[in-house]
């Protein structure tokens, strides 16, 4: 299970919050990680079922994110990264699905960091993950993490994804989410961040209750959109987290199921967005 490999990472992340040494350099360490991971049917099936994806040969891109995640965290928790990992917020995730990755194949991941970049609300770091199967590119991913309120002098400028005005549509589905979804997604993703597992930890980070994993919500939305395309861009913006237990609304806001489309997961009462997703054709 991935849980084991994540523990030292979190430990290091906690240590990093201590005011030891100086991390004034805005430069990121020039490191990358390469790792090969087999797409194992039984392990994948657990993920697929939690995010309500039908199980067949082609792997949900959310699972590719999951496989790259411990490697990303290993890089982010490096003491030389000039921002604290704990408390960083995953604000945006873009995956280019380049060709289908299939169960039984072995994926070669290459993970590196980019940034830091300026952001209106702090500083961001990007994790770039590329995945290949026998040299065939299957996925490029850019995950953007925001350190809120932290400004670094040497951070580079970066065009921000503009915040589109959001008007909540009528939900076409209501997701009733029990707190157990936090544990279930943690089990299949290896992301045991305590804010998803218990209310007290969540309070420590300023949430009134435990919150759903953003990538759980995003992956489940993608399952609902069910793109039947050879290659596509899966672009996700994270807004307000979903408090557990809770009910979220889901609706397709543009396009059609199985094709290029947009969807929203939102609070059906306040109308505020949780996760906005776009599935688009890749250019060229």
């Amino acid at each position: 299970m991935m849980a084991d490999s994540m523990l030292p990472v979190y430990a290091r992340a906690v240590l990093k919050t201590l005011p030891v040494g100086s991390r004034t350099s805005p430069e990121l360490p020039q490191r990358s990680i390469d790792r090969s991971v087999p797409l194992e049917p039984v392990a994948y099936a657990g993920f697929a079922h939690v995010v309500e994806q039908r199980l067949y040969d082609v792997v949900h891109p959310g699972y590719m994110h999951v496989l790259g995640f411990p490697l990303s965290m290993q890089l982010l928790s490096d003491p030389e990264v000039p921002l604290p990992m704990l408390g960083m917020v995953h604000i945006h995730n873009r995956v280019d699905v380049l060709s289908p990755a299939r169960l039984g194949e072995v994926v070669d991941f290459h993970v590196e960091l980019a940034g830091p970049f300026e952001h209106a609300k702090g500083t961001t770091i990007e994790v770039h993950v590329t995945a290949q199967v026998e040299g065939r590119p299957v996925m490029d991913e850019v995950s953007t993490y925001l350190a809120k309120g932290k400004k670094l002098p040497g951070a580079r400028a970066r065009a921000q994804v503009p915040h589109a005005e959001f008007t909540a549509p009528q939900p076409s589905a209501l997701w009733r989410l029990d707190p157990i979804i936090g544990q279930r997604y943690a089990q299949v993703s290896g992301d045991f961040n305590p804010i998803h597992l218990n209310g007290l930890a969540a309070k420590g980070f300023g949430f009134s209750r435990q919150i759903a994993h953003g990538m759980y919500t995003a992956s489940r939305a993608l399952s609902a959109m069910d793109p039947r395309l050879e290659s596509y861009r899966w672009d996700v913006s994270f807004a307000k987290p979903i408090l557990l237990p809770g009910t979220a609304g889901y609706a397709l806001t543009d396009g059609r199921r199985h094709g290029a489309s947009r969807s929203a997961v939102f609070d059906p009462k306040s109308g505020k967005p949780h996760v906005l997703t776009q599935v688009a054709h890749l250019e060229g």
């Binding site: 040969d57 082609v58 395309l229």
Partner: peptide
Amino acid sequence: GQALAQVTNE
């Protein structure tokens, strides 16, 4: 067969 079915259904 499964990959073929996906292509032709698409």
